[in-house]
Amino acid sequence: MVALKDAVGRYGIWSGALRSEDPALRAEIPEAAAELEELGFGAVWLGGSSGVEHAEPLIGATSRLTVATGILSIWQHEAPDAAARFLELDSRHPGRFLLGIGASHAKLAAQYRRPYSAMVGYLDGLEAAGVPAGRIVLAALGPKMLELSRDRAGGAHPYLVTPEHTAQARELLGTGPLLAPELKVVPDSDPETARATARDYLAMYLTLPNYTNNFLRLGFTEDDFTDGGSDRLVDAVCAWGDDDSIRHRIDAFHAAGADHVALQIVTPGSAPGAPEALPRTEWRRLAGLLA
């Protein structure tokens, strides 16, 4: 079986639209997945609280693309069920699926409590059912969850982070585990409109303490969280500008220690959890600037 880092490659696409329930979009998803594979992306991340069942149409339409959940919420999917679905899918498509799991946020999960202990228990359940640790990644931000990613999983998939966080995560993980941060890409060269698009998308995330606490650890202040984020914060977590500027920002994550960067296109009107189209034109542009 191909090693995890080789299987996902250096670049992937993160998209909530790839798990859409909209009938028109569902019909387009397999074709879009096949194109992403042809464009050279190594993995796709099914954004939001994806279930394992969303992965099969994309795997079936491709020959080598890794399909990952980014992220399956441990509060919405019981460990035995997630394990059973994983094992069933892996029996049909060996090595093609990566189970990304996370503890979500108190504001988004009524059951939320002691997230670290809950994650340990969830990993215990997956292990008991026979899911290989090397085929699991955690949505890890803080040091304890990163260490758990190192010790009990194949690596980490941190969301909404900076190159500085990536460097710290690499130090904690060591050289072996996969480090696959997510990065938002705003394909707009105008500073005012690009940052406005980013702020519209970031506003909800900046109400979630898991993210803001992580930013505080990185040296940001409460002032950076107002009105959708300061220029400093927006520029740290989003790549925008011309092709060279976007490529330079992506490269900064690799230079900091990322093995793989999961790229999420953000366009005007985008909102977390809202219905979205498949940004195939923008994916083609990304493939071109990464070639």
Rank of each mutant, 00 (worst) to 15 (best):
H105Y: 15
A103N: 06
G95C: 10
I136G: 03
R85K: 05
Q111A: 14
L138H: 09
E147C: 11
H93M: 01
E147H: 13
S91T: 02
K107V: 12
G95K: 07
A84S: 05
G102H: 02
L141Y: 15
M145G: 11
L138S: 08
F86T: 13
G142V: 12
G130L: 01
H105M: 13
V120A: 03
H105W: 14
G130N: 03
E88L: 14
L146H: 07
A129V: 02
G102I: 07
G121C: 01
A109Y: 01
A109V: 05
Y122F: 01
S117N: 15
R113Y: 07
A110C: 05
G142N: 11
Y112V: 04
V137A: 11
K144E: 12
Y112W: 09
D90V: 01
A83D: 08
G130S: 01
Y112R: 04
A106R: 13
P115A: 09
L141P: 12
S104P: 11
D90K: 02
G121E: 01
G142L: 09
I101K: 07
R92W: 10
G102Y: 05
Y122I: 00
Y112M: 11
R113I: 04
G134W: 08
L138P: 02
L108M: 15
V120P: 02
G100W: 14
R114T: 10
L141Q: 15
A103F: 14
H105S: 06
G121T: 02
R96A: 10
A84G: 05
K107S: 13
A109E: 12
V120C: 07
F97R: 03
G130R: 04
L98W: 13
G100D: 07
G102P: 05
M119R: 01
L108H: 13
K107R: 09
L141R: 14
M119K: 10
A140S: 14
P132V: 00
Y122D: 02
R114V: 07
L146C: 04
P132W: 03
G121P: 04
I101C: 04
R92F: 14
L138K: 13
R96M: 12
R96H: 10
P94R: 09
L141F: 12
K107Q: 13
G130Y: 02
P132S: 04
R135T: 03
G134I: 03
S104N: 15
A83P: 12
G102S: 03
G134A: 01
V137N: 09
L146D: 14
P143N: 15
A109G: 02
P94Q: 05
A103Q: 10
A109P: 02
Y112D: 01
R113G: 06
F97T: 06
L89Y: 03
H93S: 03
